[in-house]
């Protein structure tokens, strides 16, 4: 092929767009988090200072929000693993139309954005909604269980929104796991539970880790779902950040809040890398 060298240049416009519009702002974010905005003004003072970070780590409001958000994110990851693993396994063992349909359904929450499903969830979870209505008509409850405005409601929304991020990497890993591994283990005397523990689980670990990191990061930074389903009663860390950026208009402080989330994710990513290196040697 004569066109080997020049063909690389076809990536240039795309790479330039991502580098300038997507990656460069992250670098600026670091700087902006050290700027300040004196009280009551919208003017930014670009003298480097730690006031934003001091405020985050001394104010119980933000720390509590962070703790709540971390907890919600961890539970979301756990529930996604439990729900997502069997589904991914089922998809990976299937071919043809049924598989394509299930994969399409898993992609729907991504294509529909954060709002449309949330809109449906409000009607699903509201005191007069389907969940409470069904439970009442079955005579299981007398009074509506509060779901909107509670952590449970937010959790349901987060799992619903981010489950595909667990399922898709898992499917990718399980697709490369031929059924003969399980059959070989069985023929060597492994019972189904042992087959899972000794063969399927270790080989699916990379997908499980990737999915968990993705779901964790998405939950940690999610603000639309928690805000609507929490009815403004439960502030998550990302929602606080959104509030500072969009309502309070304190952009340096919002930048610092965003940096805290970024730092948490970087720490998690680093931990995963170290763990993986440790497992390999």
């Amino acid at each position: 092929m004569t066109a080997r060298g020049p063909a690389s240049w076809l990536t240039a416009p795309g790479v330039a767009l991502i580098a300038c519009v997507f990656l460069a702002p992250f670098a600026l974010l670091v700087a902006m988090s050290f700027w300040s905005q004196p009280n009551g003004t919208l003017l930014v003072d670009p003298t480097p200072t730690l006031v934003n970070y001091e405020r985050i780590f001394s104010d119980g409001y933000y720390l509590r929000g962070l703790g709540r958000t971390l907890w919600l994110s961890l539970v979301t990851v756990a529930v996604s693993v439990v729900l997502g693993f069997p589904v991914a396994f089922w998809i990976a063992r299937r071919a043809g139309r049924l598989r394509r349909l299930t994969m399409a359904v898993m992609l729907l929450p991504i294509v529909c954005g954060a709002l449309l499903p949330t809109l449906g969830l409000v009607n699903l979870l509201s005191p007069l909604g389907i969940v409470n209505g069904t439970l009442k008509s079955l005579g299981l409850i007398d009074r509506s269980i509060p779901l909107l405005g509670t952590q449970t409601g937010i959790l349901i929304g987060l799992v619903q929104a981010f489950l595909p991020m667990m399922v898709l990497p898992l499917v990718a890993v399980l697709d490369r796991l031929p059924p003969s591994y399980e059959e070989a283990a069985k023929s060597l005397g492994a019972r189904p539970a042992q087959v899972w523990r000794r063969v399927v689980l270790p080989l699916a670990a990379p997908g499980l880790i990737a999915g968990s990191v993705l779901v964790f990061c998405a939950s940690l930074t999610s603000f639309v779902t928690p805000q609507i389903l929490g009815q403004g009663k439960i502030a998550t860390f990302a929602a606080m950040t959104w509030q500072q950026a969009s309502l309070v208009l304190d952009w340096p402080f919002a930048s610092a809040l965003a940096m805290v989330m970024l730092g948490l994710m970087a720490a998690l990513g680093g931990a995963v890398l170290v763990l993986r290196r440790g497992a390999r040697s």
């Binding site: 729900l83 589904v87 449309l116």
Partner: peptide, 29 residues
């Protein structure tokens, strides 16, 4: 189990479609 989870994933969208045909100002089930 898979069917249930898939249903859970699209339930909000199904409810959205379903409730858009409800005549009331506030959706009730």
């Amino acid at each position: 189990f898979t069917i249930l989870v898939v249903l859970f994933t699209i339930a909000p969208l199904l409810v959205l479609v379903f409730s858009s045909f409800d005549d009331g100002k506030f959706f009730r089930f």
